[in-house]
């Protein structure tokens, strides 16, 4: 646990969770050590060399009652602390800063109310932040250890998590529900900034993350990087979950449409269809259903930028 590290009180839930943790661990250690030593002591004291004749004792109702009642009371206390640390997580306050979190294989996308989209979670300090969690493909787990929050991100459901960040800095964010090949790489970072700093960052908005135009293809590459294309597709010819992008533009591709095999040329229309409706045509040798439609996440302009970049990959 982060108990002794610099994440003390990183969010409003830390003290409640850690209190329950310490209580349960404390009681457990007392019993573990006590019972282990009793066992070893009996083994020494009543060794058959020292004590050749056992005294037959069949039981004691008093003892049975004692060691049923005392553990029951103790576990009910543990239950209470567990409940008390958890209950506030279920109920977000009314006035919150809202962010939509979209999980997909294998990255998270964060969308802010002003339209800003990032792959790192930026949050203002000392302000209640409410996350709307959605998944586009399989179940993911949204976990920020320093904040003690975890919620599964389930396709077809809209889940909620909230917290008040109380410490400035960078914190880790993991995916905790196994979601395929690159599950362990589906992490990101949370950046907590004081309100003024956050506001400056927040207002400075261009719809997509950073769009610095240093070459005609750089924008397309940036967009693809931010949205996570390269988790499944390479640009160097290596085969991953999806086909490589190397030399893709203008090439002949063998695809399956409704089980029928045929050959098409990878042109603008094909690339657009592959992004907006990826499961209509499946490239031979790959599996259906692993990529989700990017409709609504990428504009027509974005797709054009991506196509421009793909053309450059000879």
């Amino acid at each position: 646990m982060y108990i002794l590290s610099n994440t003390v009180n990183a969010s409003n839930f830390v003290s409640g969770v850690d209190k329950a943790f310490l209580l349960i661990m404390g009681i457990s250690f007392v019993f573990l050590i006590g019972l282990t030593f009793t066992m070893l002591y009996f083994m020494y004291k009543y060794n058959n060399k020292k004590n050749p004749i056992a005294t037959q004792i069949k039981g004691s109702n008093t003892l049975e009652v004692i060691w049923t009642v005392i553990p029951t009371i103790l576990v009910l206390i543990m239950f209470y602390y567990g409940w008390a640390g958890w209950a506030p997580m279920r109920k977000a306050p009314k006035d919150t800063f809202n962010i939509k979190v979209t999980g997909r294989m294998w990255n998270y996308l964060f969308e802010y109310e002003n339209g800003k989209k990032t792959d790192t979670l930026f949050v203002p300090m000392d302000k209640a932040v409410k996350l709307k969690l959605v998944s586009l493909d399989v179940i993911h787990g949204f976990f920020i250890p320093a904040f003690r929050i975890k919620e599964d991100v389930v396709p077809g459901r809209e889940k909620m998590a909230w917290f008040i960040p109380q410490r400035e800095g960078l914190f880790e964010l993991f995916c905790t529900v196994y979601c395929g090949m690159n599950h362990s790489y589906m992490g990101s970072t949370v950046k907590v900034m004081p309100q003024p700093k956050f506001d400056a960052w927040y207002i400075d908005t261009i719809k997509h993350v950073s769009v610095a135009v240093d070459s005609p293809t750089a924008t397309g590459q940036r967009i693809m990087k931010n949205i996570g294309c390269f988790a499944c597709h390479t640009v160097d010819g290596t085969k991953l979950i999806g086909p490589t992008f190397k030399g893709i533009y203008g090439s002949k591709v063998v695809i399956q449409t409704n089980g029928q095999e045929h050959e098409v040329t990878a042109d603008d229309a094909y690339i657009k269809r592959s992004i907006y409706d990826p499961n209509a045509d499946i490239v031979k040798g790959f599996n259906k259903g692993l990529m989700q439609p990017y409709t609504g996440l990428l504009s027509e302009g974005d797709v054009q930028q991506i196509t421009a970049y793909l053309k450059s990959l000879k």
Binding site: F13, S28, F29, T36, P145, K150
Partner: peptide, 30 residues
């Protein structure tokens, strides 16, 4: 048998951490 009791106790006590809501949410799937 006694080493069973020892490791079983550790397993059981860590189960209490997992049974409590607040701590379960934290260590679940870790």
């Amino acid at each position: 048998a006694i080493s069973f009791i020892f490791v079983f106790m550790i397993g059981g006590f860590s189960g209490l951490v997992l049974g409590a809501l607040a701590t379960n949410v934290y260590v679940h799937d870790t």
